[in-house]
């Protein structure tokens, strides 16, 4: 927790995918902080507690300077006398927050997040890994089922006119449009990643109608959702050819 907001980080047990979630302080009704605070929490326990709240309940998260627990108070908005309190004890992960240095990416595409979710799901049916190529003209997501020889491919062509891009899902044009593709293209780039982790990342589509895919040769793939209250990033370690 910092004066800007709350940043969450988590990694899968195999250290293949790291998720980073920033929630700006402006997304909270009130946000007070005396000094920066870093907590390690068991995500299952936190999720179990937060699921007890209904959509319109008020949740208050509190932790003191040398606290060992995060206290979550859940209040019914129209019945403020009904409050339930839950403690989530900290755990010792033996590490603090991981600072990820910014790198200059070679290529970035932005596509509709629902289309991206469909792509990830369908290619996952075919193979455990997929190749992503971004070239000047567009992007290509390819998966090959080595058993049957079946190949699946999704192609995104670069928008001829950036104005073709529309900001509402209802107006989605027939062809997938890559928004501002030219602005972030420096050189042709390709990466191979596991479809399983791409499926995980693509399931966050409800957060934002658009998703960005950023690549640099031999660097983790970055899948990023930007939204008003913050940003959600998935870093996925690449596969290399045998």
């Amino acid at each position: 927790c910092s004066k800007e907001g709350i940043m969450l980080q988590g990694m899968d047990e195999f250290h293949i995918s790291l998720v980073e979630f920033f929630l700006s302080k402006r997304s909270f009704e009130s946000y007070a902080l005396c000094h920066d605070l870093c907590m390690s929490l068991p995500i299952d326990s936190l999720a179990t507690v937060l699921k007890k709240a209904n959509d319109d309940d008020v949740c208050t998260l509190k932790a003191g300077h040398k606290a060992k627990v995060l206290t979550v108070a859940i209040e019914t908005r129209d019945q403020p006398w009904l409050v339930s309190k839950h403690d989530v004890p900290f755990i010792d992960l033996g590490s603090e927050y991981l600072v990820i240095s910014r790198i200059p990416y070679d290529a970035k595409i932005t596509v509709w997040s629902t289309r991206f979710a469909r792509l990830a799901h369908e290619l996952h049916q075919l193979s455990g890994s997929l190749d992503i190529q971004i070239i000047h003209e567009g992007a290509r997501f390819t998966a090959l089922d080595e058993g049957s020889g079946k190949k699946g491919c999704f192609i995104f062509r670069r928008a001829k006119v950036v104005d073709e891009y529309r900001d509402s899902e209802d107006d989605e044009p027939a062809g997938a449009i890559i928004h501002e593709f030219h602005r972030y293209f420096h050189k042709a780039t390709s990466l191979r990643v596991s479809t399983k982790y791409l499926v995980h990342a693509s399931k966050r589509a409800p957060l934002s109608s658009k998703v960005s895919v950023l690549m640099k040769e031999d660097q983790p793939l970055l899948v990023q959702y930007d939204f008003y209250e913050g940003v959600l990033k998935f870093y996925i370690a690449p596969r290399i050819a045998d």
Partner: peptide, 14 residues
Amino acid sequence: MGRQQTLGKFFDMP
């Protein structure tokens, strides 16, 4: 499929 790398190669893991 290729060999899966881990993030330890890219990030400075504690």
